[in-house]
């Protein structure tokens, strides 16, 4: 008694046809993404769900390495706030990163990503927190004065009404003037996921 409780909880794959109909992905793409999802979701616990630890592990190859940005992205993927990402969450969130996703959708996601306190504004202290996280991650030291100079300059450009916080409208204008900021919001891989995960054909429900 007691030693054999490791039975895997099988969670059925959400209907690939439905997911394809509401995203830029084809049914085959969704099936290929399921192969990727399975790989990530079984890396720590084989429960058909991605935990924050597994997400972190997939990005950094190191589950102990806490990262503010990975944590934020995970929280945005976890739309139902269950503390885990299911396959539907995964596909819908990756859809934002699809090269064909509208720029507006990417702008909205990036705004939420950087609005750490979810107040509807990107505030100075949040920008400072993110710069410090980046510097810590990259093991770079900058003086407090340099950091303040960078933030001042950024708010001069991104916060035209100078109220000390960037609202959605200001963010949108700022991103239109600096489109390179959206580069992290596009994953070219997603245009061709079936090539990256060809094993999906063994489980495909799509007929030739």
């Amino acid at each position: 008694m007691g030693c054999f409780h490791s039975k895997v909880r099988e969670i059925p794959m959400e209907d690939p046809f439905a997911l394809a109909s509401e995203t830029a992905f084809s049914v085959s793409d969704v099936e290929a993404l399921y192969e990727l999802f399975k790989n990530i979701s079984r890396s720590v616990t084989d429960d058909g769900l991605i935990s924050k630890e597994e997400f972190q592990l997939a990005i950094f190859n190191n589950k102990k390495k806490e990262n503010l940005f990975t944590s934020r992205i995970f929280d945005l993927f976890d739309v139902k706030k269950k503390g885990v990402i299911d396959f539907g969450d995964f596909v819908r969130a990756l859809n934002v990163f699809h090269p064909s996703a509208p720029m507006e959708v990417k702008i909205e996601f990036s705004f939420k990503l950087y609005d750490l306190d979810n107040t509807g504004f990107i505030e100075r202290h949040e920008v400072k927190q993110m710069i410090n996280a980046l510097l810590c991650e990259a093991e770079i030291k900058l003086s407090e004065e340099t950091i303040e100079t960078i933030i001042n300059k950024t708010f001069m450009d991104a916060d035209p009404n100078q109220d000390g916080k960037i609202d959605k409208y200001e963010w949108k204008n700022f991103v239109y003037e600096n489109p390179s900021l959206l580069k992290v919001m596009t994953l070219p891989y997603l245009r061709d996921v079936t090539t990256a995960f060809p094993s999906f054909v063994f489980h495909s429900k799509v007929e030739d």
Partner: peptide
């Protein structure tokens, strides 16, 4: 030069924002 970049250009250099690594699993 970090001072010539805006804060978000710096932030977007984080590896934690680079989801390409998901595809290496």
């Amino acid at each position: 030069q970090p001072t010539s970049m805006n804060a978000f250009e710096l932030i977007s250099m984080s590896k934690g924002l680079n989801l390409e690594n998901l595809f290496d699993t």
